[in-house]
């Protein structure tokens, strides 16, 4: 059974299966269920452009993730320890990172790989003609016209800029008051 939620997200049929919301004791089933959860979380995050997932989202009603973490029709919801385990698996697979670091309650979800974000960023800068211009991070996260990068978390933006820096396509400029970045054309 496929259920289309109000925001146009198609929930997979497994979302209507009660066992999906319980941690499986059998290691094989557990691994499959976790993989399904990760897939669901990533596609949903991509659909709604969500970046942060917290363990507490499992408990609080009305969070951004409510649609997938709960299923009122079968009266099930994922429990906090279960979600915490899934987050751990995601971090291990490099599909998320604990943000802020040194805690395990909230993660930054990479529904695009960091390298892909770097390319998205570079494409945007090029297509808007902002190469060789000095930009602030705020210019990127909050442009006058909404872009693919609108509201991108600073830590992720920093990583993407760092990746571009390795190929000499970005340059961080730091002054006492803050930081800025300049993107450079692909050098020969």
């Amino acid at each position: 059974m496929i259920v289309v939620e109000k925001r146009g997200f198609v929930l997979p049929s497994i979302h209507s299966a009660p066992p999906f919301f319980t941690e499986q004791p059998n290691p094989t089933t557990h691994a499959t269920a976790t993989a399904q959860w990760i897939k669901l979380i990533l596609t949903y995050a991509r659909h709604r452009k969500l970046f942060t997932l917290r363990v507490e989202d499992a408990e609080t009603a009305g969070s951004d993730w409510e649609e997938i973490l709960r299923n009122e029709r079968i009266n099930r919801k994922i429990l906090a320890p279960h979600l915490s385990n899934i987050l751990e698996a995601m971090v291990q697979q490099n599909l998320a990172v604990y943000e802020p670091p040194k805690q395990a309650r909230s993660v930054l979800v990479f529904w695009r790989l960091q390298e892909e974000w770097a390319e998205v960023l570079y494409d945007w800068v090029t297509s808007t003609g902002q190469l060789n211009t000095i930009m602030t991070f705020y210019d990127i996260t909050d442009p006058p016209l909404e872009s693919l990068l609108t509201n991108i978390p600073l830590s992720l933006l920093r990583k993407a800029i760092g990746i571009l820096g390795k190929t000499n396509r970005s340059q961080i400029i730091a002054i006492a008051d803050g930081e800025g970045v300049r993107f450079l054309s692909r050098s020969k």
Partner: peptide, 27 residues
């Protein structure tokens, strides 16, 4: 590895400073 990067001049820093001030105003 930094050879092809342009130097950060005082001008660049001044521009960045202005832009950061602008961001503060926007916020």
């Amino acid at each position: 590895s930094n050879q092809s990067l342009p130097k950060i001049t005082a001008q660049d820093k001044a521009i960045l400073d202005l832009k950061l001030q602008r961001d503060k105003l926007k916020q």
